[in-house]
Design a protein around this nucleic acid. Structure first.
Lengths: 140, 140
DNA sequence: GAATATTTGAGAATCATTCTAAAGTAGCTT
DNA sequence: AAGCTACTTTAGAATGATTCTCAAATATTC
């Protein structure tokens, strides 16, 4: 078996972020890694339980916060709902939120990204991170 | 005295949004109207108390939510802090957040606005509202 | 001014999230 | 592989933000 199984990559990711590798952190990161959607903390917790190993809800919250602070996962804070999470391994993107279905679509606009930098610069700032969310309805 | 005092405009604004005009709603809207910054609900409550009339915290939350739902005030939901509010009477704008000082700067980029519409359209959506926040540090 | 539908207030309740202290474990060191 | 030590986890308590409950107060309608 080659040395780069998905599991090993997960372990490395955790270790590289400066945290010890534990059963629980592995489980939580794996849930996010496998997720097609953007689950919130209780949902991550539920999936971790369901799939393999037991993790407490407190650890789920703590670990997600740690990983987010390390930059390994990203917080998705939508209007009026609990914080959701996604891995940071995908290239940067922003979000379209379908107000009817709740569906979240990812998109990237290099033009917008560049304009954002310009705007920030004009105000004497440089961007550390940003949030761009388009709350939409299906076009008629 | 002309019929358009600030107070009368406030009353109209509330009435036009389909709500009855009450002492409390007036007070809350006035606080926001007078605010130079972007206060959260407890802060609005405090200022209402301080300035003139008594309003309960529950009513403050309820009224801000009502006015936001009616579109008369706008929620400003920043990363990791309680929801803040601003009146919707100012022209639309987005926000730069100074991560060090917490200062919030307003800006508007018609180019970005247009690109957002294009992106939405490309995905078959039309924008109902959006959030764009640039979390920044002062440029060195 | 009386009738009716809304609105308010105080505190309880809820929801999301963080904290606490005790018990468990990762990863060096030998 | 056993010991050591610092880092982690856990369950439940605690906190913080916000919403709910329903009786009392009040805005509009007649």
């Amino acid at each position: 078996m080659a040395p780069n199984t998905a599991d090993q990559i997960i372990d490395e990711t955790i270790r590289n972020s400066g945290l010890r590798v534990t059963r629980q952190r592995r489980a939580i990161y794996r849930v996010l890694s496998d997720a097609e959607d953007h689950p919130d903390a209780p949902e991550v917790h539920k999936r971790a339980q369901a799939s393999d190993l037991k993790v407490s809800l407190a650890t789920t919250y703590r670990t997600l916060a740690e990983l987010a602070d390390k930059g390994v996962v990203t917080r998705l804070t939508l209007e009026g709902e609990p914080t959701r999470f996604e891995t940071s391994d995908a290239p940067h993107h922003d979000h379209i939120i379908d107000l009817e279905s709740g569906e979240v679509v990812e998109f990237l606009s290099p033009e917008i990204e560049e304009l954002q930098r310009q705007v920030a610069r004009q105000h004497g700032y440089e961007i550390v991170f940003h949030r761009l969310q388009l709350y939409c309805r299906k076009k008629t």
